[in-house]
Design a binder for these strands. Structure first.
Lengths: 138, 138
DNA sequence: CTAAAACCTCTAGCGGCTTTAGCTGCAAGA
DNA sequence: TCTTGCAGCTAAAGCCGCTAGAGGTTTTAG
């Protein structure tokens, strides 16, 4: 049996976060030692790794909960799991697209200013005046 | 004089958000009507647009506060403003890099699954098993 | 046996808002 | 003039996904 510290060490998820996941229902209530400390099996550690990996990919707690529920029902069709992954992919792509616009504008702003005083600073002027933008970031 | 609603309409910043910005010290305490409603001048609206634009670019409230303070002192050197913009650019670039890794992995995961049941679902297996990853997203 | 490390619960805090509850202000139509 | 209904007000709580701290208990190493 693993202590919560062992779990933390082997998965890289911090101890308070593990307790948080239990509270959120991603991990079931762990068995307890006589002294009320959590004890985990290897399969619970695997589930924690699953959760960690999913979080690293940006999935919400809610989405992970759905995936865990799904994985408890191996006979169900996996279209649902596909949908969750695909949605996340779409979200990530949107974020990339948006950040690229920001990158372009910030680049322009911060390479443009050759003045010495705030009075003429391009950074400040660009922020004050959206018309100086080339792209239509929202 | 503009009401808070007018401000919201012309800048696209929601009414409660405007009040929040005032609380955070980005907007100064607005004048009030006899009936205690906020009344704004055009220059306050311009400042709100500035804030909005900066937020869209991902600047934190704190960074925006610094920029506003700077813009009140036109004779100061603008190196500080440049630094803020450049830092934000670096942050944005980091985020893009990370998201691209996620995109690659999600793409692989969600195009890989041709099974019908959760039992064999690649999405679920990939999440359970980090070894299936090609990149070393953190 | 003791000291230290690890564990426990509970609560509060982060950023950047959004929402809710319960009020008051104000303009336009009957 | 009255009323209706939108707009505004304040204060406080809620959201996400943790993280940190206080103050106590259990486990482990020596």
């Amino acid at each position: 049996m693993l202590t919560i510290g062992d779990m933390a060490k082997t998965t890289g998820v911090k101890v308070p976060t593990i307790r948080y996941y239990e509270q959120m229902g991603l991990l079931s209530h762990a068995e307890r030692s006589e002294g009320n400390q959590r004890r985990y099996s290897r399969s619970e550690r695997d589930r924690l790794s699953f959760i960690k990996h999913a979080r690293e990919l940006g999935l919400t707690i809610e989405a992970i909960r759905e995936l865990i529920d799904l994985s408890q029902h191996p006979e169900k069709p996996c279209a649902e799991a596909d949908r969750i992954a695909a949605e996340q992919l779409a979200t990530v792509r949107q974020k990339i697209a948006k950040l690229k616009k920001l990158e372009a504008e910030l680049e322009r702003i911060s390479t443009h200013c050759h003045s010495n005083h705030v009075r003429d600073c391009y950074v400040i002027r660009a922020l004050a005046n959206h018309d100086l933008c080339e792209t239509d970031h929202d």
